[in-house]
C-alpha cells in the first residue's frame, strides 16, 4: 500500500462502503432508527456516505461548501445546482433555500436525495414518525434541525409518488426519512 493511501480514511475501500450501505439500508428500511457508522478510522460520516453512494454518474449539489476539495476530486461527481441535483448536501440548522427535483409521475426515483448535516441524532427535539418500515409509530430525536425543513419536506412530499428522500447525519450516525414517512412536529402535521 502506498503512503498516500495509508493515511487516507478507508471510506474508499469496497468493504467499508458495503458496511456503510448496510447501515443505510437499515436506516431506510426502518425510518427513525439511528444507525452508527463509527469505524476505527476517523472519516466523517458525510464522507463515508458520499463515498458509498456518489460517483461520476451523479449530479451533486453542495450550496454551502460542506464537501472538502479532496472528497470532490475522489467522488468525481458532477457539480450541479440543487434544483438539478440527484444528491444535495446541506446544513440542517439553516432553512432550505432551494427547490429540489421531485421526480415525475413516470420516474419518481428522480426525486432528489437530500443529505442534511445536523448537530445530533438520538438527542434533541423528538419527531413522531409513522409509515412504511415503522411498526405503528417511532420517535426520532434530532438536534440542530431548522423546523422549516420539516414543513418544506411535507410540501415536497405531498403528492406521492413525487418527493424527496432525506438522510440525516451527525458526527458518527445517520438516519433516513423516506418520502413515505409521515412526521408529526410542532407547527404542522
Amino acid at each position: 500500500m502506498s503512503e498516500i493511501a495509508s493515511i487516507q480514511p478507508s471510506a474508499w475501500e469496497p468493504l467499508t462502503q458495503q458496511f456503510v450501505f448496510r447501515r443505510l439500508l437499515e436506516a431506510f428500511s426502518y425510518p427513525g432508527r439511528v444507525a452508527s457508522v463509527a469505524r476505527t478510522d476517523a472519516a466523517p460520516v458525510l464522507s463515508l456516505l458520499l463515498a458509498t453512494l456518489v460517483d461520476a454518474e451523479i449530479a451533486l449539489a453542495d450550496p454551502q461548501g460542506l464537501i472538502g476539495a479532496d472528497d470532490w476530486r475522489r467522488l468525481g461527481a458532477r457539480r450541479a445546482a440543487p434544483e438539478k441535483a440527484h444528491f444535495i448536501v446541506a446544513r440542517g440548522d439553516l432553512a432550505p433555500a432551494f427547490e429540489p427535483s421531485l421526480g415525475t409521475l413516470e420516474s419518481p426515483e428522480r426525486g432528489a436525495t437530500v443529505v442534511l448535516q445536523v448537530e445530533s441524532l438520538g438527542v434533541g427535539a423528538p419527531l413522531s414518525l409513522s409509515g412504511p418500515g415503522i411498526d405503528g409509530a417511532a420517535t426520532l430525536a434530532v438536534g440542530g434541525l431548522d423546523p422549516t425543513w420539516l414543513a418544506r419536506r411535507a410540501a415536497w412530499n405531498s403528492a406521492f409518488p413525487l418527493g424527496v428522500d432525506v438522510i440525516l447525519v451527525d458526527g458518527t450516525r445517520l438516519a433516513a426519512l423516506p418520502r413515505t414517512t409521515r412526521i408529526k412536529f410542532e407547527g404542522g402535521h
Binding site: 469496497p14 462502503q17 428500511s29 458509498t52 418500515g133 409518488p161 418527493g163 423516506p178 418520502r179 413515505t180
Partner: peptide
C-alpha cells in the same frame, strides 16, 4: 474477480437503486 463479482461502480448503482426502491414502495426502479 473482485469481491462480489460486480465492479464497485455497478454495486454503487444497485445500492442507490435499492434505496430509492425502498422510498417508493412497489415502484419498479430502473
Amino acid at each position: 474477480y473482485s469481491f462480489g463479482f460486480l465492479d464497485e461502480y455497478a454495486k454503487r448503482e444497485v445500492r442507490r437503486t435499492v434505496l430509492k426502491a425502498i422510498c417508493i414502495p412497489g415502484y419498479q426502479t430502473p
